[in-house]
Nucleic acid binder design. Structure first.
Length: 315
DNA sequence: CACCAGGATGTTT
DNA sequence: AAACATCATGGT
């Protein structure tokens, strides 16, 4: 059932704002900074939405999560405390990580501006499929495509406030008939996604296998997949498998390296940029990458700066 | 209406 | 190994 036939869902949306009565909460340790808004709006995840009052809603796995931060307090519903701690990696020692990557003035200012941003632990397949879809597209467009994909292929369920959809499994994307993938506006990425879905549907346990491999071997493994190049592989290893030495290089990072780092103009290829990132920032280079990406508005006024997306309307 | 986007693939030097 | 064209779609 393709669900473009819902007229009831939209009408009820005004109500869910005052209906929220969350119970569980987490008190953050003062020495472990966390910024929910930065973490969910920095572009590493695509299925979270923030309402006018600062409450975030997102589907992870087969649950709708709603979560809000007020100072050192996290209030949420939809999953248990352990899930929140794992998803947001609240047990990672962020000050130690940030201290280890704080090796130049530029990343230092990014750390100061984005302190509390954490790299989340995404479900492997959702992350992989999302970044295949994300190639050569901007973030609003990526979000819409993923939304289409979940509405057409995901399992519908009811969370607080309306109908929700899980992220579709590889089996569903690969084999469900009739195939409505054209409706998801994936363009030339559609055959990549289908072929990768088919391969992984026949390779159960690929996530467990990847999780045990070191960065290089896991990366080689991912690069066999259609639609997965170096950038997508590094994003998946960083955002879903906790390989923090991964240093994804997109056009923004490339531009930042080229214009803001001494000798950066000579970093022409992906491998040159990525190798520089790992050797310059070390074991947690991926964190440095994400902080620089989150702070990419610093490029405003540098030639192409008029195209820099101003940080999303927060608060 | 131009130009670009969390690039990958295939081909050509 | 590195440079290049091409790809489909939507944002700004």
């Amino acid at each position: 059932m393709c669900p473009h036939r819902q007229g009831l869902v939209c009408r009820g949306q005004i109500r869910h704002a005052q209906k929220w009565s969350p119970v569980p909460s987490i008190s953050l340790r003062p020495d472990q900074p966390f910024d929910l808004d930065l973490t969910l709006s920095c572009g590493q995840v695509f299925r979270w939405e923030r309402d006018a009052r600062g409450v975030w809603s997102g589907v992870v796995g087969d649950s709708l999560i709603r979560i809000c931060q007020q100072g050192q307090s996290l209030t949420f519903e939809g999953v248990d405390r352990k899930f929140i701690q794992t998803y947001f990696q609240l047990e990672e020692d962020l000050p130690a990580i940030l201290g280890s990557i704080d090796r130049d003035p530029l990343v230092h200012s990014a750390i100061c501006r984005c302190r509390g941003l954490r790299i989340v632990r995404q479900p492997g397949w959702e992350c992989l499929a999302s970044y295949i879809i994300a190639t050569f597209a901007n973030i609003p467009g990526i979000k819409r495509r993923i939304s289409h994909l979940c509405r057409c292929f995901g399992n519908p369920f009811f969370g607080s406030g309306g109908e929700c959809y899980t992220f579709p499994s590889p089996e569903t994307i690969a084999f469900r008939e009739p195939c409505r993938i054209a409706e998801c506006r994936l363009g030339y990425r559609a055959p990549y996604l289908k072929e990768t879905a088919r391969l992984l549907a026949g390779d159960p346990g690929w996530e467990e296998r990847l999780r045990e491999l070191p960065y290089d071997a896991a990366r080689r493994d991912l690069l066999r997949l259609k639609g997965v190049g170096k950038k997508v592989a590094d994003c998946v290893l960083l955002f879903a498998f906790g390989k923090y030495e991964a240093f994804p290089v997109d056009v923004w990072i490339q531009r930042i390296l080229a214009t803001r780092y001494p000798g950066g103009e000579s970093l022409r290829t992906y491998d040159q940029c990525s190798r520089f990132g790992r050797s310059h920032f070390g074991e947690y280079a991926g964190y440095a990458q994400e902080y620089l990406f989150c702070d990419r508005a610093i490029l405003a006024g540098e030639g192409r700066g008029d195209q820099v997306p101003v940080s999303q309307p927060e608060r």
